[in-house]
């Protein structure tokens, strides 16, 4: 890059402060829109607020109330259920699709890639509205077409089916998106590794276990962590699909419960507490995931 010195003292001085000015917008925006709200919400979690002006200090009272709150635990269970469903169902499907689309034997790859990726372009609200029709107990596509279930399943009306319905919707919407990450990872694996494995007599499965998966480890770690964080922050899909978490809070998630407390019940201190508990959950889960996937390990 060309470096130019000038005799003009204004620009000489300016060159010294320019780097700070260039990074200043980020820090200013961070302080205003992230730093201040973070600190403010932490302070808020130690208060109980009532109405628009009154607040009293309750220390860790909101946290102890939260851990005794059955709806919080139910929301946490539902969120964990979705996260596990995402990891065990959505990501393997995404990986499988990526492997299929990376193979030499599949035709029309570009069209298929677009088709699998397309659902993520649909806004979550519309996805929820569409799947509301799909899951309808009597007229819905799922119950109409999949008679192998042998009975009318109340996907959105019976508590035990609500989260599976949300998970399946998540698979439809996000599997294609994660597939793109896996596909990029697969395309980055050097062909020589497969050739060497073939020379060593490895079959397809052994090559997959000993070449593909280890080479994909950084991508898998990234997708797992990002998907897990996204799952723990689940809100709009079940909120619309289950009309606010009904029936009997079967579709309630942590963020939905946070929203309800903050905006519907006007319990802002309590909502801030839920937010911080969610933050610690995400931080712990992410660190454990990265540790288990060996991302902190030195090669």
């Amino acid at each position: 890059m060309r470096s130019k010195r000038t005799t003009n003292p204004f620009w000489n001085r300016q060159q010294k402060i320019a780097p700070y000015l260039f990074i200043a917008p980020f820090y200013l925006l961070f302080v205003v829109f992230m730093g201040y709200p973070l600190i403010s919400s932490l302070v808020m979690s130690l208060y109980e607020m009532r109405g628009f002006q009154s607040r009293i200090f309750v220390g860790l009272g909101n946290f102890t109330d939260l851990f005794r709150d059955p709806i919080f635990w139910k929301s946490l269970r539902n969120t964990a259920y979705f996260a596990i469903g995402t990891l065990t169902l959505q990501l393997p499907i995404a990986l499988l699709l990526a492997i299929l689309l990376n193979s030499k034997f599949v035709k029309g790859k570009n069209v298929l890639r677009l088709a699998f990726f397309a659902p993520v372009l649909v806004a979550g609200v519309f996805v929820a509205i569409i799947f509301n029709l799909v899951y309808d107990q009597r007229a819905g596509l799922v119950n109409q077409e999949f008679v192998l279930f042998g009975k009318e399943i109340g996907w959105l009306n019976e508590e035990k089916y609500v989260m599976p319905a949300v998970i399946l919707t998540g698979v439809w919407q996000w599997a294609g998106f994660n597939m793109i990450y896996f596909l990029a990872g697969l395309q980055g694996i050097r062909q020589e590794l497969y050739e060497a494995a073939a020379v060593d007599g490895a079959n397809w499965w052994q090559a997959f276990i000993h070449v593909t998966l280890p080479s994909l480890r950084p991508v898998i770690a990234f997708v797992f962590v990002v998907s897990m964080i996204g799952s723990l922050q689940l809100f709009d899909l079940p909120f619309i699909l289950t009309n606010g978490g009904e029936p009997a809070d079967a579709g309630s998630t942590i963020v939905m419960y946070l929203y309800k407390n903050g905006f519907q019940f006007m319990r802002l201190g309590y909502a801030a507490t839920i937010g911080w508990v969610l933050f610690f959950i995400i931080a712990i889960v992410s660190i454990v995931q990265l540790k288990l996937l060996g991302i902190f390990r030195e090669e």
Partner: peptide, 21 residues
């Protein structure tokens, strides 16, 4: 019968009305 869909204004409910259910 419970409401078809998630509330009375759900398209599923309107469909059930049209079907005479």
């Amino acid at each position: 019968t419970p409401v078809y869909g998630t509330w009375h204004g759900d398209p599923s409910n309107f469909a059930a009305m049209q079907d005479g259910k």
